[in-house]
Nucleic acid binder design. Structure first.
Lengths: 258, 258
DNA sequence: CTTTATCGGTATGAAAACGTACGCAAAGAC
DNA sequence: GTCTTTGCGTACGTTTTCATACCGATAAAG
């Protein structure tokens, strides 16, 4: 560990970058280009080469898979807990398996995929952190697959809202019902009914194109088991909670329920 | 490339091992322990440490995610096209994210997880092949997630039968309706109805605890788009088809529709 | 051969989600 | 301020899947 230079990690909010020792950060820093992420911006198109990867500092990106005949469905979420462009680590000519786009605007550090690959050859912590994140995404994908097969809409919507909220600051999720319905692979009308029920319970508040989480704990009560499952495993894989028991998701501990 | 020693790759049927050059195989070979896989054998339990990984030579293993309240659901399949124990490559103290078990008996080469990790440090092809397979699993998980959310049972069952058949020899899948229903996350009664419909069309034949594929092409017709999607991307990621276009899945080309 | 456990076909009513559509309201454009 | 677009609440009948249950058939065990 030792002392991390103040000019080093202090300026990063991305959790992968924050975990790097000073020397690795030093080596990586010249290659990082700060960029702004705007809503709807496509970071990677499915089945096309990946030239650049993104370490998010703020904002939120979604990864989707294509069903061809019934549109896109969300299979994973990345915020400042990870990076977008996993295949850059996994093959020399990386091609995206997902469509990745920005839903909540923010900032990121952009990096050439080839550079990331080279850097991971020499920077062990960077490599370890990134590969762990690959594992997180595997786990997340899998759990979502099981959840989509088995759980009903109310639980899934609650889970989804929580997972999104955990990766941003504040309780506001700028997204329409139309968008939510696509992500979850259901009708918009279905979202409307369930969301109103959650609103009736005082757990969320809806306004036009926006969902605000009012009662985090109450929402967690309504969420399916997959929520805790994913967050617990995420913490374990990333090595955040020593006991790997039921720590409160590791993220955003500072922000209680209101 | 050069000439691969006859005593080398000739004895392997696993596609990852077959792709290795002679020198890497030479280095790896002493660590491989041939083992037999029996039905229902659990290779890795979810959320428990991985001590050993398995490169399958024959047979079929399934990876499942747990919903806690509604049992296990299949999220991926591994045959001689890959290996079981991905986290061994992704973190120093690997812990399985899935429950992995054998459904169709066969053989495998067992290897200590720590050894695999060490070997990938020095054997570039081994590392490349295994990491590509990680990508395949990511893609497979994702597509299954989308499929579970969007597609209906008939298409999903057909897809599932095809994906299983592609990874084994012959057209016989030794599995009960009960098992199929768990894998797909639906009722057994639902499988019964759909399977009988496929049988009525002459695409499959059922006997007790066994499904036989009679008409591969016809079944593909009934399968949802995810089948072709996954197989196409698998071929692309593993670098099997140069054009990455619509090659016939890369596996089992020799066995026609019978 | 008989017994027993498992497997699969089928039926029932209930619940969830579907496709579609209509109208109101909020936000942005002019 | 008015017009236009977009988002949301709601409703309808339909389809899919659900939970459960029963019973005959098959295969294994004795």
């Amino acid at each position: 560990m030792s002392v991390v230079s103040a000019a080093g990690s202090a300026s990063f909010r991305n959790e992968l970058l924050r975990a790097l020792p000073a020397d690795e950060l030093q080596a990586l820093r010249p290659h990082l280009l700060p960029v702004t992420l705007v809503t709807s911006q496509v970071l990677h198109e499915a089945e096309t080469p990946i030239d650049e990867v993104f370490f998010l500092e703020s904002g939120l990106a979604f990864l989707t898979a294509d069903t061809r005949d019934h549109g896109l469905v969300e299979v994973g979420t990345t915020g400042r807990d990870g990076f977008v462009g996993l295949p850059a680590l996994l093959s020399p000519e990386p091609v995206s398996v997902h469509r990745a786009f920005v839903q909540i605007p923010g900032r990121a550090h952009r990096l050439r995929a080839a550079t990331l690959r080279e850097m991971t050859e020499t920077l062990p912590t960077l490599r370890d952190r990134c590969l762990r994140y690959v594992q997180v995404m595997l786990m997340q994908n899998s759990q979502i697959a099981a959840c989509n097969a088995r759980h009903e809409l109310p639980g899934r919507l609650a889970r989804w809202l929580l997972m999104s909220r955990d990766r941003i600051e504040g309780d506001d999720l700028p997204m329409t019902q139309e968008f939510l319905s696509t992500m979850l692979g259901v009708r918009r009308a279905g979202i409307s009914v369930v969301a109103n029920s959650l609103q009736g319970l005082g757990l969320i508040r809806q306004s036009r194109g926006r969902v605000t989480i009012l009662d985090r704990a109450g929402l967690e009560e309504k969420a399916c088991t997959c929520y805790r499952m994913v967050e617990r495993n995420r913490a374990r894989i990333m090595g955040l909670s020593p006991g790997a028991a039921d720590a409160p998701a590791g993220l955003d501990k500072a922000q209680g329920s209101r």
